[in-house]
């Protein structure tokens, strides 16, 4: 599987807790394409536990949110903010073991469908044997770059670089006229 180019990689000071390789406190998740969407494989040590030997459930939310959110970004070429997310924990996730999170776009929730800026996605974390241990469902709101620019802290040069990177993201929903337009709301 190939690794998609995340637009954030062009930022000089990119410290996303979930997916930056430059944040020593973060998870440094790396993503690969999956036949159904996007996936990441992770192995979290005891610095990330709640009960001894058990990965903190909030961090599993981070993993799911990162995988779903980045799936939407690489599919739409637009910044996506999380609107709501719901986790279902099926079994304890052990520290020091490998798990894989797979994110998928929700059925009937293709990016930009019906002109709506809302995109639904689901994620599933499975153990090394493919047994599910947690699931997530979430709604994201795609925003045009101009809106996103007002809500995140960027220098002007970084903003230009990110805008360019998003514009060249090979989004599935991109038309000959550019990315599928979304409403300028809120």
């Amino acid at each position: 599987m190939t690794a998609p180019e995340l637009p954030w990689a062009v930022l000089a000071d990119y410290r996303c807790f979930g997916c930056s390789p430059h944040n020593s406190h973060g998870l440094a998740l790396e993503f690969d394409e999956h036949p159904d969407g996007l996936q990441t494989t992770f192995d979290l040590g005891r610095s990330y536990e709640s009960y001894p030997g058990v990965v903190h459930g909030g961090l599993l939310g981070v993993v799911c949110d990162e995988t779903m959110g980045n799936l939407i970004v690489v599919r739409t070429g637009l910044v996506a903010f999380t609107v709501s997310m719901r986790m279902r924990y099926l079994a304890p996730v052990a520290t020091g073991r490998s798990y894989t999170c797979v994110a998928r776009l929700s059925a009937g929730s293709a990016a930009g469908a019906g002109g709506s800026p809302l995109v639904g996605a689901t994620a599933e974390i499975v153990d090394a044997d493919g047994i599910p241990v947690a699931t997530a469902s979430a709604t994201y709101r795609n925003v045009p770059f101009g809106t996103a620019r007002d809500r995140i802290t960027l220098t002007n040069p970084d903003a230009d670089r990110l805008h360019q990177a998003l514009s060249t993201t090979p989004a599935l929903s991109t038309t000959a006229d550019g990315p599928v337009p979304v409403e300028e709301t809120l």
């Binding site: 099926l90 599933e124 599910p132 699931t135």
Partner: peptide, 18 residues
Amino acid sequence: SVRLLRVVARAEQTWDIE
């Protein structure tokens, strides 16, 4: 309880419901 929760999770995924 774990297996029954997997049943629930699979049903939620099948019909995209919560």
